[in-house]
């Protein structure tokens, strides 16, 4: 049973302003979720999620809705890493991310790392709904424990639908209490940072990427749809970011 946790929702909606730029008709947050518009570049609007409190803590339920409507060019980042911590409240914490990218829109969802601190229990679910001509760059990075620390329990699901069809559905469970073998040679093998870079581009339907290694411990693959995925494991957060940055620049 959940008691006493924080419930908070942030909503960001972007759309083309008809003059080649992007406007943000909705930019709302509450509690620990505070979206702030920052200086963009060109047609792209930029929003930073500023964590007004540390968290999520046990029992919290945070939700972020981002909608990139037709003509929008939107980049959403975060001011700092998100640290899952144990809380006073009972039960695990939930962090739900719902991203909607409409036809002719482009969303870059590039938050900082999610760090699973010792004793925390967090379930993250990221669901992306992309229209057939939508474009997306999404980065997710999970770090198991702060430096030298045992991780908490983290379950992270990433699902992508394009034109209503599920193209990717992946869930990684790790930390104490996760199903056995999570730290073994089939799953993470002692790596303390794991991440994914997900790209949706309509042109991938005609010209999918070729599967190839893109950095140490990172492989690029074409999905069964107009999308590509980089999966990377690394000893730590810094090396993971380096691998994912290399992958992104290799993709142009």
């Amino acid at each position: 049973m959940r008691t006493g946790g924080v419930r908070a929702t942030a909503r960001i909606t972007a759309r083309g302003d008809g003059r080649g730029g992007t406007e943000l008709p909705v930019l709302e947050g509450e509690g620990p979720l505070a979206p702030r518009r920052t200086r963009g570049s060109g047609a792209q609007a930029r929003v930073v999620l500023v964590g007004a409190m540390s968290g999520p803590l046990g029992g919290d339920h945070l939700t972020v809705h981002v909608r990139a409507a037709t003509g929008a060019r939107l980049l959403v980042g975060s001011a700092a890493a998100t640290i899952a911590l144990p809380g006073q409240a009972k039960g695990d914490a939930r962090y739900d991310v719902r991203l909607t990218v409409e036809d002719g829109a482009e969303l870059h969802w590039l938050p900082e790392q999610l760090i699973s601190a010792r004793g925390s229990e967090l379930r993250v679910v990221t669901r992306v709904e992309a229209a057939p001509t939508a474009r997306l760059v999404l980065r997710e990075e999970q770090v198991l424990g702060r430096v030298g620390e045992e991780p908490g329990r983290l379950t992270s699901r990433l699902a992508l639908r394009i034109g209503g069809r599920t193209v990717l559905d992946q869930e990684l469970a790790c930390g104490p209490g996760a199903p056995g073998g999570w730290d073994g040679p089939a799953v993470l093998d002692g790596h303390r940072a794991v991440g994914q870079l997900l790209l949706v581009r309509p042109e991938f339907a005609e010209a999918p990427v070729g599967a190839r290694p893109v950095a140490e411990g990172a492989v690029l693959v074409p999905l069964a749809g107009p999308a590509a995925l980089v999966t990377a494991t690394a000893p730590d957060a810094r090396l993971l970011r380096r691998a994912l940055d290399a992958a992104l620049s290799a993709l142009g």
Partner: peptide, 19 residues
């Protein structure tokens, strides 16, 4: 429907399969 299926993944199996 099929979204009810588990989606448990193993990064090193995926990375290793391509290598």
């Amino acid at each position: 429907g099929p979204d009810e299926l588990p989606a448990a993944s193993a990064p090193l199996l995926e990375i290793g399969a391509e290598a």
